[in-house]
């Protein structure tokens, strides 16, 4: 996966974020190399969503830096930024399923025949072919999230961010999305997602970044984290004790 043109690893150095004068994300540092699925774990309000947004570039860190590898610069000269994001509540444009994907590709600068091919691929890859002409906003919650992932996938990201992608879905739809994500990792896409669902983290994570009150408390391989967390906060969280 690592090549000269890769945007990975993503290096976050002491990136902090203030909102309304309050420290919302502490100056955390971590590195996301190519491959695998990293879960941002933590209770509500831990700063998971903000951290993802800082990484994706929707927010600018108040201090510190978010840096991509050399490949990003080469890509920036082209049109694609190489990372995409899927949000907690799927944001569906008031258009058809197909047009939602087309729009994202057009916005990212993909054109003509290439765009058409990618739309078709995305529809097929995520089982949305029959839904292509339907209004996206009339899909079920699970289908909407599937479309959101298909739309992000069509952009050919090296790294895909997902913010609590299943928190609004029923168990069956959640299971579907989880299978999809495993498939993406198998395809070679690096995934970084937030969740407050321990079960989901156990099922999916290769690596866990545990956040608490904006601070990165633990950065460990998933099997080590779940086997024996170092911090008191993580232990309390794993024990199901309410934290914030």
């Amino acid at each position: 996966m690592l090549s000269v043109s890769s945007i990975l690893p993503l290096t976050v150095e002491a990136a902090a974020f203030f909102g309304d004068g309050k420290l919302l994300v502490a100056p955390n540092s971590f590195v996301i190399p190519a491959g695998g699925l990293t879960v941002l774990l933590g209770p509500n309000g831990a700063g998971k969503s903000l951290t993802l947004r800082l990484c994706h570039g929707l927010l600018t860190p108040s201090r510190g830096t978010v840096r991509w590898a050399a490949g990003a610069e080469a890509r920036a000269k082209g049109q694609r930024k190489g990372h995409a994001m899927v949000f907690q509540k799927p944001i569906m444009l008031r258009r058809s399923v197909e047009a939602n994907i087309t729009h994202a590709l057009a916005a990212a600068g993909s054109n003509g025949a290439e765009r058409k091919t990618r739309v078709t691929q995305a529809l097929q890859r995520f089982g949305l072919g029959e839904r292509a002409g339907q209004p996206a906003r009339l899909l079920s919650g699970g289908e909407q999230q599937r479309l959101a992932i298909a739309r992000a996938w069509a952009l050919r990201p090296e790294l895909l961010f997902l913010d609590e992608p299943t928190s609004q879905l029923d168990p069956a739809a959640t299971r579907q999305i989880e299978e999809l994500l495993s498939g993406l990792v198998a395809e070679g896409i690096t995934v970084m997602m937030s969740t407050h669902d321990l079960g989901q983290a156990r099922r999916l994570a290769d690596r866990v970044l545990f956040l608490h009150r904006g601070r990165l408390v633990e950065d460990a391989l998933a099997k080590d984290f779940f086997a024996g967390p170092h911090s008191a906060e993580a232990r309390a969280f794993l024990a199901g004790e309410l934290l914030w």
Binding site: H56, L58, Q79, K81, A84, M85, F87, I91, L93, R94, R95, H103, A104, A107, A108, G109, L155
Partner: peptide
Amino acid sequence: SEYRDHLRSVGLDGLRAIPTLLFDGRF
């Protein structure tokens, strides 16, 4: 306010988002 995250994510920020917003707000 509904579309912002997604549009900025795919690179349509500020005034560049206007055509999409006008089209989707057509009704």
